[in-house]
Structures are given as C-alpha cells and as structure tokens.
Design a protein around this nucleic acid. Structure first.
Lengths: 347, 347
DNA sequence: TTTTTTTGTTTAATCGATTAAACTTATATT
DNA sequence: AATATAAGTTTAATCGATTAAACAAAAAAA
C-alpha cells in the first residue's frame, strides 16, 4: 500500500551493483565513467520500473545548489505582482528552477524576515522587488555573495543588477499626452516614498509640465501614505478638486492608487474625462471595463519577468558575470479617459 | 569578504566540543541530554556571535520533513487564486511553513508535472485546487501516503479532505435573487467541465428556476470551453440575446467568464441592468468599479485558505487524523447590476 | 611470459544536522 | 572499599546522492 520512496540504494541492490554505478548511469555519465553497456541498460530499466525519483534534498546538500530561486514581491494579491510572478514561475521552470514567492507588504522588516527564511532554505538566488529602507538588505546580500537581481525598482546609488521600467519617461509621456489633449491643470497622486521609482514618476510628470511652459502648482502633487491609502487618496482628490486651481486631469502613480481614486471619483459623481481626465500606471481588467476605459502606462510585464530570470540564471551559472542593468519602456495605451478636449488642438 | 556559511562543526570546534553537544543545546535539549550549564552557555554565545543559521537541507534530509507545502492552483495571475495564495502563505508562515506555489492552467498534465516536481522537492504535503481529469492524481497521492487537502473543488466520489464552497447553494441563491428581482428569463454561462463545482453551480441555478415554477430553456445554459473562452462567451451571449426567448439576466459562473462577458456586453452597448441583469461568482475590484456595480457571490476566501492550511497541518502533525470536509457558504453581495425591476414585486 | 594499459566496478569520504549508544568521570549507596 | 548511579561528553551511524580514488580483471603491448 504505502509505496515508500525509492533510493539509489534500492536500485543498486536490485541490480546487484554499487550505488556509484547507478549514480553514474542515471546522470548520463556512463561514458566518462565507462560503465558496462549491459549493466547500464539494466540500471536504467530498473530505475524506470521502480519509478525512481531522486531526492532533491540529498542532491542539494551535496552540490550546494537547490535550483530554487526566491521571489520577493510586495503582495501576491496585487495583480501587477501576480502577473510578474506568473511569468517568473514559467520562465524559471523552463530551466528546471522552482520559485518560492514571498510577500513583503512593502515593509522592510517583513522583507528582511523573508530574505532570511529563504536564505536558510538555501535558495540559489533572489529576484527582489525592493521596499523602502531596504538598502541594507542589498549590502548584506552582496557581502554574503548571494546572487540577486532587482526587479521593477532599484537604487540608483547602489551598484546592482536590475531590470526595471523607465518610470521617468513613462510619466513624462503621460504628462505630454494630457497636455496634447488640451488639459491644462494636471495633477498626480503618488505614494509618499523615498523609493526611486516613485520619485521618477513624479519627476517625469513635473518635467513634462516644465517643458511645456506650464507652471506647476504644489497643490497638484499629492503624496499619500501606503498604510492609509483609502483615506488619504480621498483627501488628495478633495483638495485637488476644490481650490480655484482645481485640476482637470490626474495621473495615478500606481494601480492601487487608481483603484482607490476611481472609487472616490465615482462617489463624487465626477465624470471621466469631462470633469476629470485620468491616466494611470499599472494594468488590469478594471481599466478596460470602467465605463470610460482608462488610459494606462503598460509596463512590459512579460519582458521584465523573463529578463530578470535570465539575468539571475546567467549569474548563477557564472558568478563573475558582469553587472547587468536594463530600463525598459512602458507604453502609453490611450483610451477614452484622457480623450482630447474637443475645443483644443490635438497632436 | 565572502562570509561563508557557518555550520555546527564550526561552532563545535570553536567551543572545543563535539557537534552533538552543539546540536543538543541549539535545539533546547540541554536538559534531557544533561549538557553542562557552563558549556551550554558558551555554545549559545558562540552561535549568536557567528550568527549561526542551521542548514535546512541537512535538517530535512535527516528528519524527512521540509516544512514546506505545495500549493497547486489554476493560475496565480487570476485574482481569486492570488488572494487565496496570499492567505495560505501568511497562514503557513505562522507555523513556520514555506509555501511553493505552482500554476496548472486547469490542465491535468501540467498539474501532474507540478505535483511530481514538488514531490521530488520533498514537500510535506499539498493544498490542491484540482483540475479536470485529475482524479488519478488523488489516487496516487493516497497510495503514496502523501498528505493533501483539496481546496475550492472536490470530487464527490473520492474520499478526501476538502475545504470548498457550497456552490449549489450559492448558485441557487443567485437564481432566487434574480427571480425575486422580477427577472423571468435567467441564463447562466459556465465552463464546459466535468468538475463537480461547476456542475453544482449549474444545478443550483436550475433548481432555483424549478422551485419557482420557471420552465428552463436549453438556450439559457451555455457552457464554454476554457481554451476558447473569449470567442465562445461572445457566441453564448449572442445566442442568448437574439432568440425570442432572450434572457433578461445572466449568471456568470466564474470571474473569468464575467470579465469576458462584460467586455462583450459593453461592445454590444447593452445596458446593465436594464437590458441585462448580471450576477457573477468571484470577486474583484472590477465589480466595484463597473458603471453599474456587479452583484457577486463572495466566497469566504480568507476562511477557505486558512482552513485548508489548518487541515493540512493537523494531518502533518498526526497522519491518523480523521477525514475532514467542509463546505462553506458564499454570500451574495447585492449591487445595482441585479436591481429589482421596478414593475415587479421585491422581496 | 611479463608488464602495461584499458575497462569495469567498488570503497569511502562528503555535504550538515540529529541522536542512540558508548564511554568517562564523579558522586552516591551499601 | 566495592559497587551502583548519575552527570557530562564523544562516537558513529544515518538521511540520499555524488565522485575522487582505489581496486580487480581483462586486453594489449613488450
């Protein structure tokens, strides 16, 4: 009944040879180790017959390689990360790697715990979506010589491999797109964060205004705290839409901000895009299905995920591999939520 | 620079004792093994000093326990599964377990591959969202005595632990809700599948009609193939809305079906709920943000996930634990998409 | 025929942690 | 003083696979 695990030893004794031979044969080293032709065949047969499955733990203990990579993200229940995770999983599997995913909730402390759990589990390397204040983690990994690739976010002052989006450019494009559509009082809602990717999103937006001779008003930039997103997004929108400078367009710097913002905009019965035009980072079904489909900045998820795996595996194969950094372009997908004002010139 | 791994042996030699003592002390067995008080203290100190982290592989190889569980789902990029995964991850972590997630894409073959990869990685047990035609997997796990719990879906003819939703009841509720709202020609779009959970969703709907003396028309039940969902949902809706029996309400049996359906309904410029009322299984931001918020059957995600982990861990602790099966209730969240017809009695 | 080379196979150490059993001392009992 | 018990520590086997090194037997070269 209880078909227990088959080990090399079982095969060896059944074939009447030592475990060494079995190991050689089953690892395709019969040539180098000149195993007898007959006996090799027999071993293979028995292995198949008993449905032998090698014990990864033993293999890993010996080799020091687990063929496992740790993927640290903010939250697997966020569609952006869920999609990335899926790509990473598939890509890793192609090379025989298994992925262990952990959610940090954007908290450095959780991320640190995760990192340590996974290090103890002997993952071969990491793909990390960093959270704020986690520079020390990076230093630690470097010191310990643990291979890793930063994904989606990076620290400009740290020398690391990374695969990310050109957020400055994306945000700049969003700004220009709205300006070209005739919008004149464009605001942005971002997270209050020191993270570079967030700063870049704000900077791109501001540069777009500046390049088009728009005077940026402080009231147009709202930075909300992740921990209190729902309330603060509401306040932000209230403030942006109530003064005499009230905005006619908002850029949401993340998917989560957009969801909260749109809900509140619905509550306020503001019409998109007539009362308020919208452009958002992220991508999800909800942007398609909103009554007025939402213009968004589509990040190359697939490519981001694939490339990060590729970089990491290259590094695992050859630890002396040079540093690799890539910024990819997001694509602005124009929809009705940022439709050009009819009274304005369109480009 | 390259701070290499600290092992028991390193501590032992630094303390001038054997590894046995170190192991005893670090596992809190100094009492049973009557380790000297002095030496115990010294060992602990050195361990802390060197920041000793035990090697999980070695531990696992010896103990046969990896403290890892495999979570097999259809697709991590589907929000339903992503949310479940998050709950499972958090719950498992509380007990020191790590989760490895794999996506099967509803394909038995992929699920089988996954299962085997994870078995080779020596996971202690599985939480599985089954796909069609995977009964044999269940038999295999039982034969091999590998602990597992089925989540969200189960096979009524197989004796297994499971944690799932009462789909019959949920669907019945949806039907009754629409009937009470005055809808008279209610259709359902489901997957063409032998899976019990899907059958139950159809059955509940049909029973609701029957109990209210509605005559069920074949044209009101559409079963589409997962592989060709986009096209077939369109066809289904076309057929349901074009004949003389055309439906005035549709129940979508899954989130994915609803997304595709709503997109097409938008294309057709059908108004919800005036032209077509909607109730859907699943839950996601998009249901809130649709111009007419969608009535949905809210499954107790949190509880499903938690309970499945609980069941599995109980079984891991005590393999002779009796079989556990739970059906949980989904809750119908009524929104505008199924608003009662004004000309009809409301309940 | 003797020596060398080739071919085929086994032995044993290793990865790192655990733990039953063996082994010393020291202390208690008779 | 002789013996039993307790206290403290080490030895060595084990988990399963890998692989360098040792070994034995057969074939080739001298």
């Amino acid at each position: 009944m209880n078909a227990k695990k088959i080990s090399l030893k079982d095969i060896a004794s059944k074939a009447g040879v030592s475990t060494a031979l079995v190991s050689y044969v089953l690892n395709g080293k019969e040539k180098e180790s000149r195993v007898g032709h007959e006996i090799a065949k027999k071993i293979k047969e028995i292995a198949r017959e008993l449905n032998y499955q090698p014990n990864h733990l033993a293999k890993s203990l010996r080799s020091g390689k687990t063929h496992t990579i740790g993927l640290v993200i903010a939250d697997i229940s966020n569609p952006f990360f869920a999609n990335i995770a899926r790509v990473v999983e598939d890509e890793a599997k192609k090379s025989g790697y298994t992925v262990i995913i952990g959610s940090s909730d954007e908290k450095a402390e959780k991320a640190w715990d995760l990192l340590n759990v996974l290090i103890n589990r002997q993952v071969d390397g990491f793909i990390i979506v960093s959270s704020e204040h986690s520079e020390s983690h990076i230093h630690y990994l470097k010191e310990r010589n643990i291979p890793f690739v930063l994904l989606d976010r990076h620290f400009p002052d740290l020398q690391t491999d990374f695969v990310a989006t050109n957020n400055y450019k994306a945000s700049y494009d969003a700004g220009v797109h709205l300006i070209n559509g005739g919008y004149e009082r464009i605001g942005i809602i971002a997270y209050r964060s020191d993270m570079y990717h967030m700063q870049e999103r704000v900077r791109g937006y501001q540069q777009a205004l500046k390049d088009h001779k728009f005077v940026f008003k402080n009231n147009w930039l709202k930075e909300v705290r992740f921990e209190n997103i729902e309330q603060e997004v509401k306040t932000a929108i209230d403030e942006m839409t109530s003064t005499e400078d009230k905005v006619d367009a908002i850029i949401f710097a993340t998917y989560g901000l957009a969801i909260n913002g749109l809900k509140y905009i619905n509550e306020l019965k503001l019409r998109v895009p007539d009362d308020l035009a919208i452009v958002s980072f992220g991508q999800a079904e909800v942007f398609d299905l909103y009554y007025c489909p939402i213009t968004y900045l589509k990040q190359p998820l697939e490519l981001l995920g694939k490339t990060s795996v590729e970089f990491l595996l290259a590094k695992l194969k050859n630890p002396d591999e040079g540093m690799k950094q890539i910024l990819m372009e997001a694509k602005l997908i124009a929809r009705d939520s940022s439709m050009a004002k009819t009274s304005s010139p369109v480009t």
